[in-house]
């Protein structure tokens, strides 16, 4: 055995593979087996519909406005919410980065992320409801005459996506902005750039690539909105999101093939947007935001 395995071992070692490297295998196998394989399996399954040809599921989806309409209904929620969250995150992060008790704020903001969408939805049902504190306050201040409807419609889901999504985009943006060497802005200031000019010439170009990634993560997350769309929205109507349609196919019609097809369509839309954004990101400076050396 030694004659044949010796040289082979040497080549492996030459390529940097040794016992320690093999420690990565269990985790990698796990992900392949339980993430990659199901995905591929689901993809293949989606081409084996209960009835019709191999594209039967997709034909069914795209010929039924009640089904393909979910893409639009979900986009209508996910895109504006994501853009709003990023638009809010940047100015807030610009102010908060110099704050001394930053940790208190970030801890409060991490709460909605930790609690998750189900709890936020339940909380908002009470809080935004016709008898909730928000409507009461607005009436008290005379801003409205009668309670405005904020639950079981588009806005309920929208607000819940801001509550869980803003902290996420904010914390990412804050870590990016804090990563910019303060000397860069100081240098710009000594060269005569005012606060606005420093933001648009220095800070913004340096965080655009990071913002693109943030957008992708936040958008993909919002696009797969599920429990809050059901609990806070109108799952039969204006917030019939695509993930709800997929779950219905799986758990109400027990058509796993169709459900997989919907999940694949969902993935394609998500990857499509991500691909678009990341391609655009390639046009910007992508290096480190340090002060130059190292």
């Amino acid at each position: 055995m030694s004659a044949s395995s010796r040289p082979r071992q040497r080549t492996l070692a030459d390529r940097g593979i040794d016992g320690v490297t093999l420690l990565v295998l269990p985790a990698a196998l796990f992900v392949v087996l339980l993430f990659v394989y199901p995905f591929v399996y689901g993809l293949l399954l989606s081409f084996a519909p209960k009835e019709g040809g191999w594209l039967g599921n997709y034909a069914k989806f795209f010929s039924d406005p009640y089904m393909y309409g979910t893409i639009w209904l979900t986009l209508r929620l996910a895109l504006p919410v994501t853009l709003l969250n990023i638009a809010l995150s940047v100015p807030v992060a610009m102010q908060v980065r110099h704050m001394r008790r930053q940790r208190l704020l970030t801890t409060i903001l991490v709460l909605p992320i930790t609690l998750g969408t189900v709890l936020v939805a339940e909380g908002l049902l009470n809080y935004l409801g016709p008898q909730g504190w928000l409507n009461r306050l607005l009436i008290l201040f005379g801003l409205i005459d009668r309670p405005i409807r904020l639950v079981h419609n588009y806005w309920g889901v929208f607000i819940s996506l801001v509550i869980t999504g803003f902290p996420f985009t904010f914390l990412l943006t804050l870590s990016m902005i804090s990563g910019i060497d303060p000397a860069l802005e100081q240098a710009a200031a000594t060269l005569g750039a005012r606060a606005r000019q420093r933001f648009f010439n220095i800070v913004l170009p340096l965080i655009v690539p990071g913002l693109a990634v943030t957008f992708c993560l936040a958008f993909v997350d919002a696009f797969s909105v599920f429990p809050s769309a059901v609990m806070l929205g109108a799952p039969a109507g204006e917030t019939r999101v695509i993930s709800f349609a997929a779950a219905q196919a799986a758990f109400e019609q027990y058509d796993y093939s169709y459900a997989s097809a919907i999940a694949m369509i969902m993935a394609v839309v998500q990857f499509g947007f991500v691909g678009l954004v990341l391609t655009a990101r390639g046009l910007f400076y992508n290096g480190p935001a340090g002060g130059g050396k190292g």
Partner: peptide, 9 residues
């Protein structure tokens, strides 16, 4: 500046 603070982009 000590670390030059050149604008990397």
């Amino acid at each position: 500046f000590q670390n030059y603070a050149l604008f990397p982009h």
